[in-house]
Design a protein around this nucleic acid. Structure first.
Lengths: 294, 294
DNA sequence: TAAAAATACTCCATAGGTATTTTAT
DNA sequence: ATAAAATACCTATGGAGTATTTTTA
């Protein structure tokens, strides 16, 4: 069966004439006749009762035509739905970021997207890195802000900016008044770290291995904010990414490292197979610009 | 656009694989790929995001597929509706009879149809002859019981039985005790007649012209039942079709005419162009049999 | 390297057209 | 006689097939 045939019977019903219906369908009368005949044979019923002077609709024909109307209406809806999404810079965009980044990055990014890509409907997802990667692979989200590198083969990434770590100490701490610090000054120092599953934990562990620092055992924080409060309480010291640093708090001091400072690279990550390369490019430009302006 | 294409995307959505979907659709994988690609181009959007390892559904694709599902479901409904009406002896039958016939004919006919054609859904219409003919022409009813002949060119008829007229007189009337009567005995007699628009009026007027009887002016009845009551009341005499005669009423006498008695022929009438010749033939047989049995 | 989708091409089924016939008024 | 639908027959679009290439995990 064919959607055109359904349109044919609907038009014949409207005009009660094969010739007029053929005109409105932009086909010849014989085409219309044969197609309708085939449809009737396929359905096994007569839709029309025709003589050379009159076209009548059979009772079952009326029901068939009512169904055809619904089908064609639904097809119309589908096509206009598609038309409203033809713009590659429109539609839903599901965007993720891991927790220690999301709350600091999303506000400015969302604002930038809303003004630059007003037809994009944003859905924000805040999950740990491995969950975001999984959601990317499954197609549950379209793009994510992650620490690079991401080595999942089906994903590609573009780095956006470096986020340097600083040492967070309470203002009572012996190191509190240093203006800079060398990683090697931390040999055998103990660092408070985040809990398992946070990408920043892995980055901090890497830093420990390189600098000779140790993890402070027996306690692991679940968020940067908790970590910060623990530092203020004098429980220990930790690394804090620059993006999460709030210098207005007088009870905690952040000491930058001497160059080359430890850092993480934040980038956009999406599927190689994405059908929305246009948006990805726009996002890279957009975030680049919004970072310069802040 | 094509219904097959909609099925293709629905199946790919189900299996998340072009190869598996191709199998369930009984087409080759390249056919499926090219058809879906064409559909996507036609809609101007991407339904799927595919790599060689994974098939993902885009957000707009999900909506498109939801529409496709609805459309295909509706098509299924339409086809099963058609299937349930493939039996030529099933479905709705709209059947008419004029008033002076309907109340006496319908009960037995309906019973006969219900047992012989149980899958037929009957709709009964009781109207004056010209309205019934009009409804037949317009396709509002499928068949009617009418007095023959019917000379409308688009209709054909089959006679069922003759319905003889008898003279109805009150039991006080001078003719009340006759066992038969000749039409010529009615010369210059006045007959009560039905009102304009009843086919029996025309038949009675024809009888008057032939027999030399006259219409009793100044009063016209709207139904046979009224006419009967007027005869009982002594207002006059009239013709009564045999089918409407109830001999149990002692206040009115029905006198048969000598042969050849005046009569009307009752027949089935339907459109030449009908698509339900089978039912018409069944009806003729059926009514024939039901008349024999009564 | 293996497995899946995309591409290239070929074929043929059928939608559609033109010319004509049939049918009913 | 006229006007509408049906039929006959031809054309050509495009759906579907096979063989092959591309892609990527």
């Amino acid at each position: 069966m064919n959607l055109k045939d359904l349109n044919y019977i609907v038009e014949v019903n409207k005009h009660r004439s094969f010739i007029k219906a053929a005109e409105t369908c932009f086909v010849s009368q014989p085409t219309l006749s044969t197609q309708i005949k085939k449809l009737e044979e396929h359905l096994g019923i007569q839709v029309f009762e025709r003589s050379n002077k009159k076209v009548l609709i059979t009772p079952i024909g009326e029901q068939i035509i009512a169904h055809a109307q619904i089908i064609l209406d639904q097809v119309d809806k589908m096509q206009s739905l598609a038309k409203n999404h033809q713009d590659p810079l429109a539609g839903q965009l599901r965007i993720g970021a891991f927790p220690s980044l999301a709350s600091h990055l999303f506000p400015s990014v969302v604002t930038a997207i809303k003004t630059a890509l007003p037809k994009i409907q944003l859905i924000l997802v805040e999950e740990k890195t491995d969950i975001l990667i999984n959601q990317l692979e499954k197609g549950d989200i379209d793009v994510a802000f992650l620490s690079l590198p991401v080595k999942t083969p089906s994903l590609i990434s573009e780095s956006l900016f470096d986020d340097e770590f600083e040492l967070a100490v309470s203002n009572e701490h012996p190191l509190a008044n240093k203006t800079t610090i060398s990683p090697h000054q931390l040999i055998d120092q103990q660092l408070l770290l985040l809990d398992e599953g946070h990408c920043m934990r892995d980055q901090a562990l890497q830093f420990c291995q390189w600098s000779g620092a140790k993890e402070q055992l027996g306690v692991r924080a679940a968020s940067l904010e908790t970590l910060r409060q623990m530092v203020i309480a004098g429980t220990g010291v930790t690394l804090m990414p620059a993006i999460a640093i709030d210098k207005t708090n007088p009870n905690i001091n952040y000491i930058p490292f001497q160059q080359p400072a430890p850092k993480r690279t934040i980038g956009l990550v999406w599927r190689k197979s994405t059908v929305r390369g246009k948006i990805m490019q726009e996002l890279i430009d957009l975030v680049g610009r919004s970072l310069i302006s802040t």
